[in-house]
């Protein structure tokens, strides 16, 4: 095998065009043009000694990331399954639907758009690597980071609003505020309370304040149970989106590293496995969100 690695080639590789007599060029085509020869030498330094050629090295790298992603599918998939084991039951579904109405749907929508676009910029970065267009490798990676940061900006806005509206899985004051008549914020239980009163054109006849005062003790008990179901929904909401946000954070860190490497012009058509592998990870995070958005924000 002529692809055997020799560390000398790292330094002498590209320059040693005329040197086709030594052991380092064993197996090469004697009729090869100088250009091909040159390229061949250049490859030797890129292949680690445990691999026989570039293609095997590349495949091993992506395969390793696919194995990691398979474990991630099972990990996050299990939480989805747990969520569905509740959601499929009627007693929970109705309350999950109300709980979901409190989430900010447009933020979920915009974030889906942002993530899909960032997936596009990642493949464009990989394509720029393949084409040897170092400038666009860098700028596509920067674009990806900008989009990833935009996702986080929306996420922070969303979590902050959720916090102010008491959309917590363990908000202690939900039921207490039911009894205190005065509330400052839009309460998560509004939808649940209004369910007890007649609707006219989708709007309840009574004000929220009147409604709370008219509830009987029995209705209050039912309400408390429904709110517990809603809290369960928020538990899933925070576990799933939180995990996803953590993955995004890791991905952003990786892309900072990639962008620095790209700025130094490290990625060439022959050697850009890092971009390819980290791209796989980024796409996976995107896929998780593709499922999160309809299943958490669009419950009906």
């Amino acid at each position: 095998m002529e692809e055997l690695y020799d560390s000398n080639l790292k330094t002498s590789g590209t320059g040693a065009v005329g040197d086709d007599t030594g052991p380092l060029t064993r197996g090469t085509n004697p009729h090869a043009t100088a250009f091909e020869h040159d390229q061949h030498h250049g490859h030797h330094g890129l292949v680690d000694h445990q691999f026989s050629d570039l293609a095997q090295q590349r495949e091993s790298g992506t395969l390793g990331m696919w194995i990691f992603l398979a474990t991630e599918v099972m990990f996050i998939g299990a939480i989805f399954v747990a969520y569905f084991s509740y959601r499929m039951r009627d007693v929970y579904f109705k309350d999950f639907e109300h709980a979901s109405e409190n989430l900010i749907m447009w933020v979920g929508f915009v974030n889906t758009f942002v993530l899909l676009t960032s997936s596009l910029t990642v493949v464009l970065a990989i394509r720029a690597c393949q084409m040897g267009d170092k400038k666009w490798v860098f700028w596509n990676l920067i674009l990806t980071m900008i989009l990833g940061s935009a996702f986080f900006g929306f996420k922070v806005y969303e979590y902050t609003t959720d916090y102010k509206e008491f959309l917590w899985p363990a908000a202690p004051n939900w039921t207490r505020q039911l009894e205190d008549s005065h509330q400052q914020y839009f309460l998560p239980e509004k939808h649940f309370i209004m369910d007890f009163f007649p609707h006219k054109d989708g709007e309840p006849d009574v004000t929220f304040e009147q409604a709370k005062q008219q509830l009987t003790k029995d209705q209050m008990d039912v309400l408390k149970v429904e709110l517990n179901h809603a809290k369960l929904f928020y538990r899933f909401y925070y576990s799933l989106t939180g995990l996803h946000a953590f993955h995004m954070l890791v991905g952003l860190g990786i892309f900072v590293f990639l962008a620095i490497q790209a700025y130094r012009g490290k990625y060439t058509p022959e050697s850009h496995a890092q971009v390819e592998i980290c791209g796989l990870y980024w796409h996976f995070v995107d896929i998780v969100w593709i499922f999160l958005f309809p299943l958490l924000y669009l419950v009906k």
């Binding site: 095998m1 002529e2 692809e3 197996g27 090469t28 085509n29 390229q39 061949h40 490859h43 050629d53 570039l54 293609a55 590349r58 394509r127 393949q130 084409m131 022959e270």
Partner: peptide, 9 residues
């Protein structure tokens, strides 16, 4: 093994 392995672009 004598050719440069290229990815699909």
């Amino acid at each position: 093994e004598h050719s440069v392995p290229h990815e699909h672009v």
